[in-house]
Amino acid sequence: MTFHEMNPTIKFLTVTLLMFGLAFMYNPWTPLAVFIGTLILQILFSNVNWKRWGLFMIPFLFTALGTLWTTLVFGKEAGGEVMFTLFGNDVTVENVMLASTLSLRVLAFTALSLLFTLTTDPKRFVYSLMQQGKLSPKIAYSVFVGFRFFPILKHELMQLYETHALRGVRLETRLDHIRHVPNLIIPLLAGSIRQAERIAFSMEARGFTGEPRATYEVVAITRYDFLLASLLIVLFGVSVWIGI
């Protein structure tokens, strides 16, 4: 029973639900509890690469800080005792509470998101959306084609440099290469659009009609999915209770 194995659609719905709930909580303790609780669950039920986790977290630490001080400086006039003055703005206890709520919310959101992203295989998510979420196969397979495009785009870019070299564009230094990028963007996009068109033809030629279909990859729902979902919901309930 891990978050990796959990049905992606159910995981997605649960995490989204929690985030929504959080948006309506205006005390710092609930987001803090959710943040810590999510970490604990993640340690218990998944195999986290903490280095990646940290890397993804860093930018949001910045955002949390930004949110903190913007709310302090540009915060609305609020009643109550003034604690200190920041850039000419009187900061009350209420201001501080609000600012920490909002920035902790950023952190809690991020922890929840990472719980989802770091344990979900994109392909499996799309398969599950198609099988449980009634997502149109036309869209699902177009997204698969889209995923395939990451390596293709990289390759096309290298190819474009080669083409331009063969047609007499001289790029000697690394800086030349970077300067040349704007000349490549439109051809790169145009090339991708043509590729997309040909892939669509191939799909049709292979007998793809876009009707609901059987797939080799089956993403099932088991009772563990409901167990993990309930755990997350309980976590939220407890956090709300802590906040009161």
Partner: peptide, 8 residues
């Protein structure tokens, strides 16, 4: 189909 793929 090609319009959907383009969209993707």
């Amino acid at each position: 189909l090609k319009e959907i793929v383009l969209l993707a």
